[in-house]
């Protein structure tokens, strides 16, 4: 391990070290974004409800890192990480959370329903399973279009008990669709431990349908990325649907009103010891010789970025019914 005084500055990094630092930065952007949403919710600037991805950042960032402009992503109502992973501009996303006209969906969608076609985010789905069917359909289109695109569905372990899960995995398997199903197992379906309501082994379900299935440490962005790279490559090569179970944990309640009193004693602390940002920091130092000072520099830059983003969101205009000009139907025909 390099001593701090000998470690290169961020600008001098290259190859795996530079890439690793970038993965860390993207996870940190998700973390700071979610913290901003939480703070703004408490100020009454974010409305309704919101579901935060704090603790689960390695999932979306690790998977999306192996995607390219041909690919499509479908996220969930806990979808801010999926959106940012897909490349949605944090400013446009926060503006959406605040219901502003400059939001990625003009303030029409809100936290649970974000769509950003320009970045391959075909949607965020407020009812579990929607992401699975949307990605299955996206994969159908990508397969027919023949340009090697792959669709990714993010969903939680609770969704593996849903009709969409069973129907779509089978549908995708018989059609050999290029889709990667990413089950983010954060151990709780809303307020209920998954083992209380889930029979058997989740990974055995896709395996029974013949899907290559890998369970990975969802707190380690490199482990997630490696599994995703292999799965996406197989899907691109025409090997059909793939399945990843990413073992993770949310550090916050299910939604804004949930104090998460159902956690087992000591469980949160145990998982926080494996905070994906902490894991990444340690790995950057040990495996890539990136000094704490360099990582601190990234922290400072992201903190400064979010000060600007939050201020700009708060100053952004609300949509008005007069300007909205909503149309029930798309006016065009083919």
């Amino acid at each position: 391990m390099a001593r701090a005084s000998e470690a290169p500055a961020a600008s001098e990094l290259s190859g795996p070290a530079q890439h690793g630092l970038e993965l860390y930065r993207r996870m940190l952007v998700v973390r700071r974004f979610e913290e901003a949403v939480q703070a703004l919710f408490q100020r009454g600037e974010v409305h309704g409800t919101t579901h935060l991805y704090i603790g689960e950042e390695a999932g979306a960032i690790g998977v999306c890192d192996v995607l390219d402009e041909r690919d499509k992503v479908a996220g969930t109502y806990r979808g801010h990480g999926h959106s940012l992973g897909a490349g949605v501009d944090p400013q446009a996303l926060l503006d959406e959370m605040l219901g502003r006209e400059t939001g990625v969906c003009g303030g029409r969608a809100g936290s649970m329903n974000v769509i950003d076609q320009a970045h391959g985010l075909i949607g965020s789905f407020g009812i579990i399973g929607g992401s699975i069917s949307a990605a299955t359909g996206a994969a159908l289109a990508l397969q027919r279009q023949g340009r090697g695109g792959v669709a990714v569905a993010f969903f939680g372990e609770g969704t593996t008990n849903h009709g969409y899960f069973h129907e779509c995995l089978n549908f995708a398997a018989v059609l050999r669709l290029p889709v990667v199903f990413v089950c983010e197992n954060n151990r709780y379906g809303e307020f209920t431990p998954f083992e209380d309501v889930t029979a058997g082994d989740i990974a055995a379900r896709p395996q029974a349908l013949g899907l290559p299935t890998e369970t990975v440490d969802g707190m380690d962005v490199w482990a997630v990325r490696e599994a995703a790279a292999a799965a996406v490559a197989r899907a691109r090569d025409g090997e059909g649907p793939q399945f990843i179970q990413s073992m993770t944990y949310r550090f916050v309640g299910h939604s804004r009103s949930d104090p998460a009193k159902y956690r087992k004693p000591g469980e949160l602390e145990e998982w926080k010891a494996r905070d994906p940002l902490k894991v990444a920091r340690e790995r950057l130092a040990e495996a890539f010789g990136v000094s704490g000072d360099v990582v601190d520099g990234v922290d400072a830059a992201v903190a400064e970025q979010f000060e600007r983003i939050v201020a700009q969101s708060l100053a952004a205009p609300y949509p008005t019914p007069e300007r909205d000009g909503a149309r029930e139907f798309a006016p065009s025909t083919s």
């Binding site: 069917s133 289109a141 549908f171 059609l175």
Partner: peptide, 25 residues
Amino acid sequence: VFDTPISELAITGAAFGAAVCGLRP
């Protein structure tokens, strides 16, 4: 033109997903 499993959730959801990615199912 293809036959599907008896899976109305999947058929309809997949049609939606394909439609927003450029097909006209």
